[in-house]
Simulated scan of single mutants.
Amino acid sequence: MAGVLKSGIKNIIFDLGDVIIPIDLRGPIRNFAVLSGLSEDEVESLWREHGLTLQYETGLIDDAGFRQHVRQLLKNDTWADEVIDTAWNTVLLDLPIERVQRIQELHGQYRLFLLSNTSAIHIAKVNKIFAELGQPVLEDLFERVYYSYEVKLAKPSPEIYQYVLNTSGLKAEETLFLDDNPHNIRAAAELGIQAVQVQPPLTILDYLRDESTNEDVPHSS
């Protein structure tokens, strides 16, 4: 696997889930199924029918609104906020500290950014995980963070990539974007961003190898 830190790259935009911190997308479904007594399929169907994740991650509803929607959908108005937050955050797995350390090594060599489809509850938990492990919170790790719920746009919408480029003064051809989702990669590449899909079992440690060992690689599309 050749690295992707090629000549001409000045900026790196990172996705969060499964790029920096591993995630289990079905974790919340499993946990809400246990809490509600419904099957995982029933919970997943309700989630999709009402578009709850997208509403929350694009800022159409806030934390309190999200929790209330969960109580209504799963027919339990007695759940405390902490119960819902804990189940929602089971999407987050253990943080490989070496990934954070590699990002820190890139400071001063590149302008570093984060672009994530996420929610405020998740970000609060991620920052708590980072702090407990003695690592800088996301807002300190990157020059600027872009959260979908704050900008009210979500990947793979072209508008969110253009927003990042415009507000941070980035040139697409000088910008590397690392994401695990092929749809997100394709959308970024169509704008001229040097988009590369992070595909397990490889991690950003494989893609962001020292430049002296890199070979040129084709862009994902």
Rank of each mutant, 00 (worst) to 15 (best):
L138S: 00
L114I: 00
E159C: 11
Q109T: 11
D179W: 01
L93Q: 10
F66N: 00
D77E: 15
V137W: 02
T86Q: 12
D41I: 14
W79A: 06
N127P: 09
H219Q: 07
I121D: 01
D179L: 09
Y146E: 01
I103K: 02
E57C: 12
E173Y: 09
I123Q: 03
Q194H: 08
S7W: 10
N11L: 14
K128T: 10
T118F: 00
L38D: 12
S7G: 08
V126F: 09
L92Q: 14
L60W: 09
L138I: 01
N181H: 10
W88F: 11
H183W: 02
I204A: 02
A80V: 11
S116E: 00
P28G: 02
A189P: 05
F14Q: 05
A124F: 06
I123C: 08
I97A: 12
W79P: 02
L202E: 09
V137S: 13
E139S: 09
G8M: 06
H50M: 04
W79H: 11
Y207Q: 06
L38C: 09
F130A: 05
V91E: 06
D85H: 15
S36H: 13
G134R: 10
V43D: 05
K10I: 07
Q55W: 05
H219Y: 10
V4P: 02
D216Y: 08
A154M: 14
A188K: 02
G59W: 04
L153N: 01
L73N: 08
D81L: 14
S7E: 14
D15F: 03
A188L: 09
D63Q: 03
N166R: 15
L115I: 04
L74A: 13
S212N: 11
I29S: 00
V164C: 04
G108T: 14
R144Q: 12
L25M: 08
V100K: 13
V83F: 11
K125H: 13
F130C: 06
V34M: 06
E173A: 14
F66Y: 09
E211H: 11
H69L: 07
Q135G: 05
L208R: 03
R26A: 11
T203Q: 07
R209F: 01
W47D: 06
P136F: 03
